[in-house]
Design a protein around this nucleic acid. Structure first.
Length: 368
DNA sequence: AACTACCGCAACCGCAAGCGC
DNA sequence: TGCGCTTGCGGTTGCGGTAGT
């Protein structure tokens, strides 16, 4: 259909010979969004006659819709046991797996996802995957690679985000840092890990840069994540868990005193923000890379968020990162703190390597 | 408050396969 | 076997809501 051609709630003439148009010569048929009254008519018809002879709906009822439109409406919206709402983590993973195996066979995928329609799956793929691709994120999980010559599918991954567990297991074996194109408001530095020769990279933000190298200024770290596209497989297992803090603490398994986690999933900005608060002093003494390579990305992934935008300093005042505005100011000291932080920069790959090296040598500064 | 950009989803289209005559 | 009709599938469009400026 050409742009602007789509009719909304209007009627159009469909030739009797058109696909699904039915017989009987020119008939004025309605197009556009369905009304509740039309839904009732169609539902009653299907309950009475069954899911067949869609062209007869228009003939034998007051509905002025073509058979194809009726079938689509019933299949995608009216039939029983339809599952509405967003896809669960498991469903998303299954879609990725099936797409990798079979390509864009939406109807086939729908048979594997009870209650889901091919149209919904197709919409999911077309929107989310494009978003991930725009963000240079790999579409497929590391353990799922396309097994078909899928010309319709996404291109080869440029950056593959590593599941937090994988990153934790392989942390320190090999680090490679590369700067990626800035996305949204943020600068992005991605870290890659190479377990068993398989390159897995984790794109996320390290806005703490010089902050971490001036650790005496910072005592507590409060993090507010901005919106970000994150593939479901990059999310940690606690996505569907009511207790994300357990995962965070388990990520700090080497710590006797895991940093506290204060999620706010039901707060004012529940949809767009997730707060993480941790004790930087203990964190840095334990595992700085665990914080930046596992916990923060995991939190970002779990809440579909990306970059932290502010933190709490040693005076328990909140500070912004460069030019990044939180949706909700944490306190009244913002202007002053922003001035103080005017020179704060994002950490360069070389700087981060330096920090990691220092960490591995065990000489990170001890915070008071 | 107004405007713009973006995103998700519903619904359209063309095409092809299936089926009966 | 060929034809016409029906059904199903995958690609695409554009509306409406929302976030951002």
């Amino acid at each position: 259909m050409k742009a602007g051609e789509k009719a909304t709630g209007t009627t159009t003439g469909i030739p009797s010979t058109s696909t699904g148009g039915g017989g009987g010569g020119q008939k004025t048929l309605k197009k556009g969004p369905w009304t509740a009254a039309e839904d009732v008519i169609l539902t009653e018809y299907v309950n009475k006659h069954g899911e067949r002879n869609w062209n007869s709906v228009q003939k034998n009822s007051s509905l002025q819709r073509c058979g194809k439109s009726c079938r689509l409406r019933w299949t995608n919206h009216l039939r029983p046991n339809l599952k509405k709402g967003s896809f669960s983590h498991k469903e998303q993973m299954l879609i990725l797996q099936l797409q990798a195996q079979h390509g864009n066979k939406w109807a086939r995928m729908a048979t594997q996802l009870p209650g889901r329609t091919d149209n919904a799956i197709k919409n999911f793929w077309n929107t989310r995957v494009k978003r991930w691709q725009r963000a240079n994120l790999c579409v497929y999980p590391p353990e799922i690679q396309p097994t078909i010559n899928n010309s319709q599918g996404p291109s080869a991954p440029k950056i593959a985000a590593s599941p937090p567990e994988t990153a934790a297991l392989t942390k320190g074996k090999q680090h490679h840092l590369s700067a990626a194109a800035p996305s949204h408001h943020s600068q992005v530095i991605s870290a890659s890990y190479s377990p068993a020769g398989a390159a897995i990279t984790t794109p996320y933000q390290r806005p703490f840069g010089t902050l971490l190298q001036d650790t005496t200024r910072v005592k507590n770290l409060s993090v507010q994540f901005g919106p970000s596209p994150v593939p479901p497989w990059a999310a940690p297992p606690f996505v569907d868990s009511p207790s994300p803090s357990q995962y965070v603490q388990s990520s700090f398994g080497i710590s006797s005193q895991p940093p506290p986690f204060h999620g706010n999933p039901l707060g004012t900005h529940a949809r767009d923000e997730m707060d993480v608060e941790t004790t930087l002093a203990s964190t840095m003494n334990q595992d700085i890379s665990m914080l930046f390579d596992v916990v923060l990305p995991a939190q970002a992934a779990s809440s579909s968020r990306s970059f932290p935008t502010w933190w709490t300093n040693s005076n328990n005042s909140s500070e912004y990162f460069n030019g990044l505005q939180p949706s909700e100011p944490p306190d009244d000291d913002i202007e002053l703190e922003m001035q103080q932080l005017g020179s704060t920069a994002f950490m360069s790959p070389a700087e981060y390597d330096s920090v990691l090296c220092s960490h591995s040598c065990g000489d990170l500064p001890n915070l008071g």
